[in-house]
Amino acid sequence: MSTAEASTPGGGTRPSSPPALRLRGLVKRFGETLAVDSLDLDIPAGSMFGVVGPNGAGKTTTLSMATGLLAPDAGTVEVLGVDLWREPARAKPLLGVLPDGLRVFDRLTGAELISYAGLLRGMPQDVIAERRDDLLSALDLHGAARTLVADFSAGMSKKITLACALVHAPRLLVLDEPFEAVDPVSAGVIRRILGEFVEQGGTVVLSSHVMALVERMCDHVAVIGAGRVLAAGALDEVRAGIELEERFFDLLGAKGPEAGLSWLRPS
């Protein structure tokens, strides 16, 4: 692994303002397993930041701790300079979260779930109503507005949860696998919404398994393996002249599929 890159996390484009997300010394242990091993990461404000890593690298655990959904064993999380775990009431309004693998209240309709998310944050009704309708049409969910979320497909659930993450107009979006199970048309819509959000000064952190997608969308990237940051910074720095996928294999010390299954040959 390359310690030079790991020791300069992020690659702040605007050094004067605090990073959108600043993780220091994050540790999480599940029984015997060390899932996240004193992880440091800076995510510069205004960036579209991709987090990649193999299964079990600690991506979801890290993002859960960074968004207040999982208490870290040690370390700090700062959202735009506010300590998330010390001052949650100040930090959480700045954050929009799309977790992976968590349910939503699926006895509510699509429209109701967005309203619920807004009301939980204490927003006024008229503002919620306006944004709810905007979000439903932007994410092409109008047909699903009056249907119970329990009857949604996986991709629709993802989109409605994203809508819930956006309704309070956060400044930092943390999205865990936002494109999983989403069809190409919806993925394009989501990419456009996120792009506009970043153009207007917002920050997006997203995790993905799909290197090509991260390479196309993100301007910054972090490679996580075994609970640590193996490399982080601007996309071109991290890829160092080769494709992200190759660099990814280099960093993990993994080889491509070499040991094939010789017997698996349908004649």
């Binding site: 309709t109 109701e112 309203s115 009056r146 119970l148 009857d151």
Partner: peptide, 28 residues
Amino acid sequence: ASRRRADAFLESASGPPVLRATAAVARR
């Protein structure tokens, strides 16, 4: 089979933010 209904969550909530959240949780 899927069921449909209109958004019943917005009307109920008024007052300061804490009360809005309380009303939303109660309705849910």
